[in-house]
Design a protein around this nucleic acid. Structure first.
Length: 296
DNA sequence: ACCCAGGCCATCT
DNA sequence: AGATGGCCTGGG
């Protein structure tokens, strides 16, 4: 099915390059392909903020009606959040943040699958984006389900160059064999992932506690409980936990500090970005700053 | 050849 | 509490 979206604050290319997702791929014709849950999609920019999204349920297991798919896409793209208000709230005397937000105004915080986010960001530690993507691609190919590429081509038109990296879905904890994680380029993270899969299979922590932190502040009790739970997992430290909260649990107040953000905080903010001023959505500012610093 | 890349953990002071 | 070094591995 096709969904048309008119949203000024949405640039699929920026999101694909934002580092929050690792299964978005830019195609030669300028469109952007991605896969999430059992869906496959291609985004075409139509100019002047108009976007066309072709989506299909590529596993064909059950009939998903069009309205359900549309709702899923709207939530996934975070279209319920008003990014214009967020950007307008920026302290105009903060020239760095203003410039960063102006450059990165097309970035949104996706509502990604929690499990996929946990696994992906555990791989991301001390790692670079191409290699992260490669490892995730190998995991999907080894344990994920093959998606029906013909169905996609039928939906989009025959000549689409659907990327080979999106030939399979992202596998769940029970799809992954923890003893067959060799040769995935995981390095020393292999042991972390193995334990993570076992833990995810056994504990209900992932299934119940980690629903969503949408609208939850980082100084609340509920947040602290989730944060500590994540930290108790081997291979998840403060930074990775914050990424999981921001990108997987949609806690927009979470503010992951990586080397890029640390760099920009040191250069312009005397070591500390005033995230309290942006209480409730500091994570969006983190994305602007991160993108800005990486462009320099 | 290095050295780092969107860190974490263990081991020290 | 805070500061270090080691760690898999591919690319500049």
């Amino acid at each position: 099915m096709t969904i048309e979206i008119n949203e000024r604050y949405f640039d699929p290319h920026l999101i694909a390059d934002s580092g929050q997702c690792f299964r978005w791929y830019e195609l030669k014709d300028g469109s952007v392909a991605f896969s999430f849950e059992s869906f496959a999609a291609i985004i075409h920019s139509m100019g002047s903020g108009k976007i066309k999204v072709n989506v299909c349920d590529c596993l064909n297991k059950r009939k998903t009606d069009d309205k359900e798919i549309k709702d899923k896409i709207i939530t996934y793209f975070d279209l319920h959040t008003d990014y214009e208000i967020i950007i307008e709230s920026i302290d105009s005397s903060d020239k760095v943040l203003s410039a960063a937000a102006s450059m990165g105004s097309g970035i949104r915080i996706l509502n990604q699958d929690t499990w996929e986010t946990i696994l992906s960001f555990m791989i991301s530690q001390n790692n670079n984006i191409p290699r992260i993507k490669k490892s995730i691609d190998k995991i999907c190919k080894r344990f994920g389900e093959r998606i029906d590429v013909d169905k996609i081509k039928e939906e989009y038109g025959l000549d689409c160059d659907w990327p080979d990296e999106l030939s399979h879905t992202f596998p769940g904890p029970f799809d992954i064999d923890p003893e067959k994680l060799d040769d995935l380029g995981l390095g020393y993270r292999e042991e972390y992932i193995r334990e993570l899969v076992y833990k995810a299979r056994e504990e209900d922590f992932f299934l119940h506690t980690l629903d969503s932190l949408d609208g939850i502040y980082t100084d609340s009790l509920q947040y602290k409980k989730v944060h500590e739970g994540l930290l108790s997992i081997k291979g998840i430290g403060n930074k990775v936990a914050s990424c999981i909260e921001l990108f997987g649990l949609h806690c927009l107040d979470a503010f992951p500090v990586d080397t890029w953000v640390k760099k920009i905080e040191g250069k312009y903010y005397d070591g500390n970005f005033p995230k309290d001023r942006y209480r409730g959505y500091a994570g969006v500012m983190q994305q602007y700053l991160f993108y800005y610093e990486r462009q320099q």
